[in-house]
Nucleic acid binder design. Sequence first.
DNA 1: ATTACTGCAAAGGCTTTGCATTGTA
DNA 2: TACAATGCAAAGCCTTTGCAGTAAT
Lengths: 159, 159
Amino acid sequence: MPHLIDEAETLLRERGFKVTPQRTLLLQVMAGQPVYLDADEIYGLAYTQDASVSLATVYRTLSLFAELGIVTKRYIEPEHRREVFRLSEGPEQHYLTCVRCGKRVLIHADLLNRMARELVRRKNVSVTGACACFTGYCPECTGDLRRGGELPDHTDGAR
Amino acid sequence: MPHLIDEAETLLRERGFKVTPQRTLLLQVMAGQPVYLDADEIYGLAYTQDASVSLATVYRTLSLFAELGIVTKRYIEPEHRREVFRLSEGPEQHYLTCVRCGKRVLIHADLLNRMARELVRRKNVSVTGACACFTGYCPECTGDLRRGGELPDHTDGAR
DNA sequence: ATTACTGCAAAGGCTTTGCATTGTA
DNA sequence: TACAATGCAAAGCCTTTGCAGTAAT
């Protein structure tokens, strides 16, 4: 989506920031990988195209992009060790991480949006952002475990 | 709840771990503060009762307790900088953090449980844990901003 | 010509770990 | 008496920052 990149660069200039080769490169890298990546992964991808980029610039750029709304910053691993980023395009993504095989199951935003609306109604708050991380078993592992009798037929488990 | 403490100490002994004054102290401290606290806060509370406890022991103990299920470990701040812990008793707690005043609004578990059940139904996964962090405005700030015309009457905003 | 941006290296914040010592069982 | 647990200090991991040099406008 070169469109997204152009928009981001226009936004940068409008706000008085400069469009540097590093910034363009990071936009390109992220546009080619529309999933959440951590700073080091983004740095790695960028590095293969330009070995002169530095990790510090990656962090600074991602931070600026997050402020401008160009990227969305999240924490999705169960251990939340690292920040992850992706271009802010399309509906938000949430994940369930399988504790057995490590696979991530994408959870579309509508469920969380419904929850947010309910929250607004019940608590009279407003919601500007949400981060939901589930742990559990992916469909395959759930099937395996049920067949093995290690899981009941229905589990929600979220205390 | 001295009951909880006894159970935890029994569990420790059953599993071959030792019941030390530090472990008992941390259990007492957490039983007196049934909310999520970070390691430093727990250390601070313990320190007032026994200045010889060390932060390293607090971390080691909380980690052991988490493995044994005695405490629940979570990340609740929007920035997820620190881990927070509380005794694993009662329904799970989730929060909305107000970006204007910093206050935390407690979100009861039922909303998230419903979401988890829906997830189980739709995706055929099983859910063993959930971490939801919302950002937005607390009821007071929402009211202020609506009166000032800075917020529409209804916002959910969770992309 | 400005002034923002970059790379480098060092520092920061939170958490973990090695090691000698202490204390529970 | 054994061996787990502790305190201390150092190290680790991810992220941020100071500074001098570089480059976009």
